[in-house]
Structures are given as structure tokens and as C-alpha cells.
Design a protein around this nucleic acid. Structure first.
Lengths: 110, 110
DNA sequence: AATAGCGCTATCTTTTTGGATACTACAATA
DNA sequence: TATTGTAGTATCCAAAAAGATAGCGCTATT
């Protein structure tokens, strides 16, 4: 055995948690796992988020290649947000977060 | 069908991410997945964390039942931090975070 | 023409987070 | 006895995150 190596590389944990962390990013991604959505649709979905924060977080996620912003300009203006391939690849992870939360929230989160 | 329910309960995502989020909590938990550790051992492991922050985060994790703080006072003073059952149950999740990070960091995190 | 909805932006303030730095009490070691 | 290590605390401060509130240009509806 003699395992002197670090079992888990903390750096990856830190980086990924920064990517999906904060108050809103995980929730936004989870909401987009469901289906692509428009700005105000997301806003309603997330409840108490302010438009300023939603804009900022969506931009962050776009820059980090997890979300796509598309303008469907056919007469009326409509913006659609959806997940990139990378974003979609987070779905099992987010699913597992949800499952863990459902199992443990009563005991851990009070 | 008429499924008006939210497919993924965002609230769980938000709560769990808060629990393991921030700059340090995930990394602390990951480090303790490896094995139980002492205060300064953790500090060295985490590199640039300040003692103030480490204390605070460990307290938070203790309050939220993910970490146990034990004092082994046998002549010399020694404090050991380890994971509770709930904390240990996060291991697969943290493992998946690491795996995702390793797969996607080059493309997403630059 | 007025109103409502969309997709934001702008400004200001509060809250949260976490770093810097110094210091402490105690014990073991040299 | 001086130094080193352990396990923290105490203060202060800067930066980041996020809320409150208002408003804007555009379109569709009534």
C-alpha cells in the first residue's frame, strides 16, 4: 500500500467549485439542464435573483464555456440560453449534488 | 403529462454548494477524505490558507456535521480533525468533481 | 396611444469573504 | 534556557459578491 501520494488533488476541487459555486451558478446550470431558457424565464425560475446578478453570472458561464447565449432575431427579439457540451457534461455531477442534498439535508442542513 | 414541476430542484443545488463551496471548504473536505489530520497538517496541505480562515471553515464544517474535532490530550496537546458519516458520504461526490475537473480543465479553465 | 413584457444596464449600498499581521498559551526539544 | 512546534485568537482591512432600485430601448398587445 504505502500510499504517500495525495489521494485527492485539492486544486481540481477548488477550481471546479469556483466554476459552479457561489450563490447562483449551480442553480442556473441546474435550471438549464432541464431545458434551454430565456432570460426572464431563468429569472422567474430562480426566484429572488436580481437581473444584475443574473446577467453577470450568465456572462461568467458564457466566458467559461458552459453556457451559450443565442439571439433569435426574427422580427421579435428573443435571447435563449442553453448549455454547451461542457455544461451538459456537468449534468450527472449536478444530479449527484441534488441526490446528496435530498438524502442529507434534514440531518445536516437542519 | 403536463409536467409543470421543476425537473431539478435548484434549492438542493444551492444548499449543497453552499455547504461545500467557497474557496476552501471543498478542499478541506477533500483533504480529510484522504485521512484524518491535525490543524497544522491541514494548513500545510492547503498551502496558502491563513489560520484564521482555517479555524473558521473548520468550525463551519463542524457545526454542519461534516467534520469532527477531537482533542487527544495525553500529556501533549493534539487536535485531530476527521470526517463524520455525512462528511464521508460526500467522498464520491468530491471524487466526481475531481474527475470532471481533470477532464475539462484544459478546455474550460484555460 | 397606453400598457406590458423582454432583456438588459447603471448606480449605490450592504454583506460576505478572506487575506495580512501580530500575538497567545502551552509543550517538547536542543 | 532559548527555540521550535502546535493550535489557535484578535484586529484590521481590501476585495468580491450580491441586493435594492431605477431606468432604457425595443416590441407586441390592447
Amino acid at each position: 500500500m504505502m500510499n504517500k501520494q495525495k489521494h485527492i488533488p485539492n486544486r481540481d476541487v477548488q477550481d471546479v467549485i469556483e466554476l459552479i459555486g457561489g450563490r447562483w451558478r449551480g442553480a442556473i446550470l441546474a435550471s438549464l439542464c432541464d431545458k434551454e431558457k430565456r432570460f426572464n424565464e431563468l429569472k422567474r425560475d430562480l426566484g429572488t435573483i436580481t437581473p444584475r446578478t443574473l446577467t453577470k453570472e450568465l456572462k461568467y458561464l458564457e466566458i467559461n464555456k458552459l453556457v451559450i447565449r443565442e439571439v433569435d432575431a426574427e422580427g421579435s427579439i428573443s435571447v435563449v440560453y442553453s448549455l454547451t457540451k461542457h455544461g451538459m457534461s456537468l449534468e450527472p455531477l449536478i444530479g449527484q449534488i441534488v441526490v446528496w442534498g435530498q438524502k442529507h439535508r434534514k440531518e445536516v442542513l437542519g
